[in-house]
Design a protein around this nucleic acid. Sequence first.
DNA 1: TAGATTGTTAATCGATTAACAATC
DNA 2: TAGATTGTTAATCGATTAACAATC
Lengths: 317, 317
Amino acid sequence: MNALSACGLYDCSSCEYKSADRCPGCFEGNKKLKADGAEICSIYDCAVSGGVATCADCARPLCDIPRMIDCVCPLRAAFQTKRWWAGRLSNFFETRNRKLQVDEQEKKISPRTVERLRWYLLVLQEMDDRGVVSVASREIAGKIGVNAALVRKDLSYFGDFGTPSYGYTVRYLIERIRQILNLDEPCHVAWVGAQRLAENQELLLELGSHNCKVVTVLDIDETRVGARVAGIRVEPLAHIGRLAKELDVNAGVVAVPAQDAQKVADALLAVGVKALLNLTSTVLSVPPGVVVRHANVVSEMMALSFYSANEELVGEA
Amino acid sequence: MNALSACGLYDCSSCEYKSADRCPGCFEGNKKLKADGAEICSIYDCAVSGGVATCADCARPLCDIPRMIDCVCPLRAAFQTKRWWAGRLSNFFETRNRKLQVDEQEKKISPRTVERLRWYLLVLQEMDDRGVVSVASREIAGKIGVNAALVRKDLSYFGDFGTPSYGYTVRYLIERIRQILNLDEPCHVAWVGAQRLAENQELLLELGSHNCKVVTVLDIDETRVGARVAGIRVEPLAHIGRLAKELDVNAGVVAVPAQDAQKVADALLAVGVKALLNLTSTVLSVPPGVVVRHANVVSEMMALSFYSANEELVGEA
DNA sequence: TAGATTGTTAATCGATTAACAATC
DNA sequence: TAGATTGTTAATCGATTAACAATC
């Protein structure tokens, strides 16, 4: 379901040629050009010879293709100016190179930024569903209620995704944020607490749509072991060690009664899980280097209770 | 279930006289003292004549009882030094007076502080269950993973609840935080989205234990109207106007499918609800002056996905 | 081109922490 | 009393915003 062309820069899904069914595809198009003795797309050529589908999949740390070339898919020459494509290309390569430098420097990403990236993604996906092609930082910011400069700053940590005076291509930005949040890699989740999952099986689908897969369901309550939830056998918590290794578990969900929460968390930590989602209204004690996030109706309600009684203090919460 | 004595300062539940069943109670005790011609507790006297149960219920903006008096319940004289009580009293009155000034100045409470107060409360309740009587800021901070000075600063926004070299009385602090978060006033919740509640009926109990009451269940899906969830009839969303008024709704829960979330939020806002809990993975657009909080497995998982792939970036998240 | 919007810098704002006098 | 812990101040740290050059 890759909506990008082989060069990884061209958003086919928003292309008028594609929607009019007049696009022959990069492969057929370039084959035709080559047969005609015409110059083919150098990006496509490089991708094919490198055995990758798009530039995004390319493992080479630096790109061989010179910058600011007037490379543009010859089949699309009329669609956008060459200059525009050259700019996009330049941005893309600079971005990739900068990104690599950043990784080396281990530049810290603020947790608030990560927090917001999810909201950007949800807003963008909703825009994409409505058929919106491009968007300005101001529009994203307005939806979420933050400053536009903050949106630009957040995004620029990871690269130059925008184009001055144009804004951001919605589809392209979605792809990039998904990549940043690692949503392209499947996230393997160990879910502890069978009942809670049995009650909310629709979660599995929604998680799946973001590439999170519940690979095992466990329970601390022995009486539940052996039952099946969404087709997955419920295992005893004691098996977590073996399962975590076999199934390559990345994250754990603590969905047991409050009094067992810490015990479950400890078991998950013991087998090396470094990311926990706590669905109970307890505070988990975890060592540094472990991330815990919460999703709990009761504890959020406690905060709302404060604001419903102190309306004048509502700033942003 | 008030664990405090009439003076509102003495934590009866941690009193050795009470637990040994040798406490006659403030009323009987002072009646006895009066009959003997002895000096009775001036706080108790004041409370009774003012028609309130404890100082905390007293409406007078300033306290008449002079500070630094050597007032101490004579029946408890042996239990703590008079000096200790005098200090507690002094703190208490100064706190009340300062608190009132603060209210007048509309001093802003940081949303981060409100965020943390809930965690403090949960940690303290767990300590209380274990029978812990007093606690230092350092201990609370350690449980949550924040700086001890931050705990003290957060609490000192609302008054001087601690005693140097002693720390905080767990029960007393629980009462105060409950009061700050307005958990002593029942919070009336309108729950929109019957199915989600039907699936998680245990929530009602847990919410109830924090004084949050689901007073009405509504649904945007007409086919669900008329069904009963936890004994409450499901009403059509169109009735929200009448119900919100009749039932004095303080907060709303948006628990419908994503595509209906904004519509439901708008309906709740239209009838004056200023506090929303969004259980969907959508971003709600709300005007300033409205607080939205989230509890959603999918969107939290998106953040965990990032950290599970970037362990080196785990700071505190 | 003129108008628009980006990425980035410097300024501002707010939140956290270290340190310490007060005091139990 | 001596040691401990509070509430608070000043210093630090981090996050947000305004402003602007770059540039499409």
